[in-house]
Design a binder for these strands. Structure first.
Lengths: 198, 198
DNA sequence: CGTCAACCGTAATCATCATTACGGATACAG
DNA sequence: CTGTATCCGTAATGATGATTACGGTTGACG
């Protein structure tokens, strides 16, 4: 029972943190505000997370784990690699452009130490790229794509798929995309990629 | 003499603001810090810019004007449109990924009101896109490119050129690119664009 | 039932700013 | 030369918020 309720509690606290972060930004999100919203005490927050940065570090790590799990599930489905790309792209877009990821990116941009940014990059791009590379290499093995540098090919795919949407979201000039929009964009990215490397 | 020295003074103040912003981020940049570094007084800052946001608003607007001016100069050179793209791309990259623009984007990300973000978008993408569209339409007129939606074509070009580099810079995981890197990336973007729309 | 650790609500520290105020210096105008 | 506007350096003022401290509750466990 103990672990269970504690995990619930953490969940509530992190929900509260996201809620404030999405609503007021990093600077506007105070530890006391999080505690109040989560009906937790300051002491608990500090005892669990150490300090403010520790709390956000926890958010980033948990979010990255969820992203990775979802993408790996897509990969595990063992479809033809073109289908995998069609499934992966929209999902990745929804994740990267969703309120959560955007809030975390804002926090990273505001964090003077740069630690959050490093974490996001490491647990974000750096853990997603290998998965993309894996799909692309499979596509190459199926003779669907032709390229030498798998990393460059993955970069090209990400450019076509994501482009500058993340920065526009972070700056507040792009709304959350609909699922249909992500599907469309994902399909276009695949089409273009095959045109370029097919 | 009056206007002259005042412009100089503003320049120094804005330099100081950039220096702090680039070094400590938006949250870590205080009005008092700017005043101290620029050897100006608080009173002057407030009398000239109104408030903190006003100062950053001024930075954004001035920066946007410079970007626009440089790009329009490239356009005015009246070369074949493919050459124009080759000149425009690297320049745009240097501007979008330079320390200044990145610092401003960080400020916008940290700004809870979203006003800075709106300004950056308006004076940034919204004023650059028309120029890109113009070049691409010229290229279409020369029968170099084929497309229906000029806006979509410009978006594709920007995706290929800029990709997710801006967000990575803002988060602190990408260093300032060298001029050579910008040249290379600009050339690759043009190659890909012609492959896709040629 | 009693003990104890963990948690809650609340308040106390301690710093850091944004913003405002003030007295002296400087410069340019008349 | 004197007045006036502007700027400088420096010091309030007032809020906010991270971090720490503390007495009271509560629920698990013996």
């Amino acid at each position: 029972m103990k672990d269970d309720s504690r995990a619930d509690r953490q969940q509530q606290i992190e929900e509260a943190a996201y809620a404030l972060l999405e609503q007021k930004g990093y600077a506007g999100t105070s530890m006391q505000g999080i505690a109040r919203l989560a009906r937790a005490s300051n002491e608990t927050l500090y005892s669990w997370y150490g300090d403010k940065q520790g709390l956000f570090r926890a958010l980033v790590i948990r979010n990255a784990a969820e992203v990775r799990a979802l993408l790996e599930a897509d990969l595990a489905a063992a479809r033809p690699s073109r289908d995998t790309l069609h499934a992966l792209g929209p999902r990745l877009l929804m994740l990267l452009l969703g309120d959560r990821a955007v809030a975390l990116n804002r926090a990273a941009a505001a964090d003077p130490s740069g630690e959050l940014g490093a974490l996001i990059a490491q647990s974000g791009r750096d853990s997603v790229m290998p998965l993309i590379v894996q799909v692309l290499k499979a596509a190459r093995a199926e003779r669907l794509l032709r390229f030498d540098d798998a990393g460059a090919a993955a970069g090209l795919y990400l450019d076509l798929l994501v482009g500058d949407q993340q920065i526009r979201r972070v700056i507040g000039r792009l709304p959350v995309p609909s699922e249909a929009a992500c599907q469309a964009r994902g399909a276009a990215a695949v089409t273009h990629l095959f045109r370029l490397l097919g």
